[in-house]
């Protein structure tokens, strides 16, 4: 079967690492006092094609087709870098993660995996907002704790990553922990 896989396409669901975040919700709260905002953002690099022109309608259709559609609210935004964002808002982190997975699969179907930048999940920390950033390309997470003036609290990020070593598929190359400054994401704080 393995040999035929290239012919029939990948059987395994893409972005399998994503679901780990939903499973880690309790650990995040108990070990690190990080509480999910139950929001998410999926960032992509748009192209001038029909796929991206019809994104609004298709996202709506896909999210409705899922199990949790009633609750998933979404909006499309553009940021100053020219990247597009699908902003998600739901009653549970699990639903948000599932919505991101659904949208990721939709991009993959359209052969637009390359255009997927990252998914971002905001959390309320004890002192400040923290984010887990998911890289579609690497199928891994890394933490991001921004400070004012485009600085970041790297010691805190290292602490978060260390504590979640078992629960999350982490990006081990620290050089790839790229920040996302000024996301259009609204948080609950």
């Amino acid at each position: 079967m393995g040999l035929l896989r290239p012919l029939f396409g990948q059987r395994k669901a893409p972005f399998g690492g994503l679901a780990a975040l939903a499973r880690a919700e309790t650990a995040l709260r108990e070990k690190l006092r990080l509480v999910s905002d139950r929001k998410g953002g999926l960032s992509y690099k748009p192209l001038q094609t029909a796929f991206f022109d019809g994104l609004q309608g298709e996202v709506d259709r896909r999210l409705r087709a899922g199990r949790f559609t009633v609750w998933t609210r979404f909006s499309l935004e553009k940021d100053s870098y020219g990247f597009g964002w699908v902003l998600l808002d739901d009653r549970s982190l699990e639903n948000v993660v599932e919505a991101v997975q659904t949208l990721g699969s939709y991009f993959a179907e359209g052969n637009h995996t390359k255009q997927l930048l990252a998914a971002v999940f905001p959390f309320q920390g004890r002192e400040r907002q923290a984010y887990w950033i998911y890289s579609f390309k690497r199928d891994r997470f890394y933490p991001f704790v921004p400070l004012p003036d485009e600085k970041r609290d790297s010691p805190e990020e290292l602490r978060l990553a260390e504590a979640m070593e078992k629960e999350l598929p982490l990006e081990s190359a620290l050089e790839r922990w790229y920040p996302l400054w000024g996301m259009p994401l609204e948080t609950r704080s």
């Binding site: 870098y81 920040p179 996302l180 400054w181």
Partner: peptide
């Protein structure tokens, strides 16, 4: 470790 974490935006 801290020096290896970038500050340049992913986008």
């Amino acid at each position: 470790a801290i020096a290896r974490i970038p500050t340049e935006d992913l986008r």
